[in-house]
């Protein structure tokens, strides 16, 4: 479920290393501040972006992150697309369960980030890789 219209060009960031995950966080924070998200909402969306960008790196073998400003009537928001061409997620329901992990993490990456954003869409297959779109709206 994604709503609203895109405003302007997306800003892209390749995710190839640890430092790129840091850059994704900084990019998302800049956009979140620009659309006037509250401090707590900024923190939530940056944390979600950090988790998902790390997933892109660790499970997807690297990929790209695109950040756009979106608008829905009077509310503005930030939309982030994480794309990789990795092996995809075999069992999506299982991957979205708290505590489930294949990578030795805490298993909160996917399920936890979903709770931190307003819209969460996931598209995955073994052929095309994984594409996760999240949106956080201002209140």
């Amino acid at each position: 479920m994604t709503t609203g219209v895109d405003l302007g060009q997306p800003q892209a960031q390749a995710v190839r290393s640890d430092e790129d995950v840091v850059r994704v966080r900084q990019l998302v924070r800049t956009v979140a501040v620009a659309v006037k998200l509250s401090l707590v909402d900024q923190t939530k969306v940056v944390t979600a972006a950090s988790e998902l960008a790390r997933n892109t790196l660790v499970y997807g073998g690297g990929g790209t992150v695109e950040v756009t400003t979106v608008e829905n009537g009077r509310r503005k928001g930030v939309r982030i697309v994480f794309a990789d061409s990795g092996p995809g997620i075999a069992d999506l329901d299982l991957a979205l369960t708290d505590g489930y992990t294949t990578g030795g993490g805490l298993g909160l990456g996917l399920s936890g980030s979903r709770r931190l954003v307003d819209e969460f869409e996931i598209d995955t297959s073994a052929e095309t890789g994984t594409r996760i779109t999240v949106t956080k709206w201002s209140r």
């Binding site: 401090l39 707590v40 923190t43 944390t47 708290d98 909160l108 399920s111 936890g112 709770r115 931190l116």
Partner: peptide, 14 residues
Amino acid sequence: MRPAVAITLVELGL
């Protein structure tokens, strides 16, 4: 720990 960080951690489930 900042309040916003604490609130986010609770939501994240950590």
